[in-house]
Every structure is written in structure tokens, then in C-alpha cells.
């Protein structure tokens, strides 16, 4: 079992840059040339780790080029940390290979599962918040941090259902994970708003309970709106449109507590041309700059 302090110590390395407290973008290969030639320098790029687990070819060539110019964040979507079964050690070894190859400033994963009985569902599926799941998730995160030799950030989920087995609030559950494993947190504010709407609580209450001191990165994305069986709004974390104005307001509110923090714009479906995605990043940069002034230049998370 790794010692949290030892793992944290391991991340202090002169060769690995930190993420700046600026806006970053989810990297899409079709944007590579536009990003490289743009006078606007995006603060950082984030990639899904699984897209770079092939052996060679264009993906690695392009990402190697981007990594020369921009800080990189590696965001795993397939480790299935919430899985009732043990971690897929082969997949963890692949993640380790990506992290070793690119030496990213940040590594993050999800509080979710995606594999069951050797079937991969390609989605981030929910877990009950109970003692058994807590122990399992902590064990898995210990294993990941031990294998990678560094801390990871864990992202709060967007969910559409809740479990009878749940005995803890999501924020308590996440706080307990961070306390036990020493991992940092990735706060996805769109996920907060989606889950709050879907389960009928106030996003502001959730954020007030959230251990914001441990937040080292923020995610922002667009969501779609549907309805549940009773005609109540059911929000879907679709990543296919601009960030909603309510989520921007919540972001402003969060930054007042955290200070400037690396902030990713995620846009994974119906991906627009770079200028549209850039506009979202510039909006985030403007809000960050405002909080930078109020924080008197103190920087958080880098």
C-alpha cells in the first residue's frame, strides 16, 4: 500500500511542468494546425489517455508535436476505477506507458466504472456511495498512484440514477477518497449542475460541501436537456455544445473559493472548428484573469 506523502513527493520533479491556471482545450487532432498557428496560445491541452495507447503512427506523431509547445494533461476514460472487480492491470500498464512517454503535467481519471465481466461499455457508469465501494475505489486509486509513481486527480461524475445502497453524500464520498488516498480532485462543474438537476438538489449546496481546497483542475462542458418519466428536466452530459450560462456562473462562484485554477473546455461530440472552441477558452481565460486580480496574483494549482 503506497504512502500518500511518498506518492506526493514523487510528483515534485523539475522535468514535469505544471498546468498553468489558464484555459485549456480537449485536444482533437483536426485542430492541431490551427492551434499551432494561432496567435492565441491555449494554456494547455488535455487528451483521453486511451486514444494514445496504440503502438505508433499519426496519433503519437501529432501529440509529440503538440507536447513540445503546450503543457499536457492526460485524462483516462477506461480504467474503470469504480469497478466491483479488480483493476485491469494490463490497462494500468498501458496508462503508465502513456504517462512515461509524455510526462504530462496532470493525470486524471473518473469516479465511475466502464468494464464489467470483461465487457467494455465505453461510458462512465455510476457507483453507489457506500463503505464497500469506498474501500474498493480507494484500493484502486492507491494501486494507480503506486504504479504511476504520482498522484492523480479524480473527477466527480454526472449521473442519471442513484442507488438504494448509497449511505453517504457524493461530496462526503469524494472527500473520504481524497483523504484516504492523497489523490487530488478534478471538479467538473457541468457534472455538478447535471447531477444536481437530475437528483433535485442545489448545485450551490453541493459546491459548498465540496472539498474545493483539493481541486487542482476544473472541467467545463455543454449539456443537453431531456425529461425524466415525470416530465422533470433530465440533463445529459453531452459535451456537444457551448458551456451553459448557468455553468459559467457556477464557475465564477467556484473560482471565488479556489482562486485561478487550470480549466478545461471539453467538447467531444459534434466537435466544432477551432475558433468556436477557442471562443469558449477565451471566455474562461477572461474569468480567470478577473479572479487572478482579486487573488492578488496568487496562483492555485500551478
Amino acid at each position: 500500500m503506497p504512502n500518500a506523502a511518498a506518492v506526493a513527493h514523487h510528483t515534485i520533479s523539475a522535468t514535469i511542468p505544471t498546468l498553468p491556471a489558464r484555459a485549456g482545450a480537449g485536444f482533437k487532432e483536426q485542430h492541431a494546425d490551427a492551434i499551432l498557428s494561432d496567435a492565441y496560445r491555449i494554456g494547455f491541452l488535455e487528451v483521453h489517455a486511451e486514444n494514445y495507447m496504440g503502438d505508433g503512427g499519426h496519433p503519437h506523431r501529432i501529440l509529440t508535436r503538440m507536447r513540445e509547445d503546450f503543457p499536457l494533461s492526460v485524462h483516462g476514460v477506461g480504467l474503470s476505477i469504480g469497478s466491483p472487480a479488480g483493476l485491469d492491470l494490463q490497462h494500468l500498464a498501458r496508462l503508465k506507458a502513456v504517462v512515461d512517454r509524455y510526462e504530462p503535467a496532470m493525470v486524471s481519471e473518473h469516479l465511475a466504472w466502464s468494464t464489467h465481466d470483461n465487457q467494455f461499455f465505453n461510458d462512465l457508469l455510476p457507483v453507489p456511495y457506500d463503505a464497500e465501494t469506498l474501500a474498493r475505489v480507494c484500493e484502486h486509486i492507491d494501486q494507480v498512484q503506486d504504479r504511476l509513481g504520482r498522484r492523480i486527480l479524480l473527477e466527480n461524475p454526472s449521473t442519471y440514477v442513484a442507488f438504494e445502497a448509497t449511505t453517504m453524500g457524493e461530496t462526503d464520498f469524494i472527500r473520504a477518497i481524497a483523504n484516504r488516498t492523497g489523490c487530488g480532485l478534478l471538479l467538473d462543474i457541468n457534472n455538478v449542475y447535471v447531477s444536481a438537476t437530475n437528483h433535485g438538489y442545489a448545485a450551490l449546496d453541493y459546491l459548498a460541501d465540496f472539498p474545493t481546497k483539493l481541486v487542482e483542475e476544473i472541467h467545463l462542458a455543454g449539456h443537453a436537456e431531456d425529461q425524466d418519466d415525470t416530465g422533470q428536466p433530465l440533463l445529459i452530459d453531452s459535451h456537444d455544445r457551448p458551456v451553459d450560462s448557468i455553468v459559467w456562473d457556477l464557475y465564477d462562484h467556484v473560482l471565488a473559493a479556489t482562486g485561478p485554477c487550470p480549466t478545461l473546455i471539453e467538447w467531444d461530440n459534434d466537435v466544432p472548428d477551432w475558433p468556436i472552441l477557442k471562443r469558449e477558452a477565451e471566455l474562461a481565460d477572461a474569468i480567470l484573469a478577473r479572479h487572478d486580480q482579486t487573488a492578488g496574483g496568487l496562483r492555485h494549482g500551478g
Binding site: F163, N198, D229, Q232
Partner: peptide, 21 residues
């Protein structure tokens, strides 16, 4: 084993996961 809000069968909620997959 999923919690149900009044009048909700969770059909449309679970359908989001089915659809995502």
C-alpha cells in the same frame, strides 16, 4: 436497487446509459 423519485420508474433515466453505450 435504484432509488425512485415519486412517479418515476427510472425508465428514461436508465435509457440515458443505454443510449450512451
Amino acid at each position: 436497487g435504484l432509488t425512485k423519485r415519486a412517479g418515476d420508474t427510472n425508465a428514461r433515466r436508465f435509457a440515458v446509459y443505454r443510449n450512451n453505450v
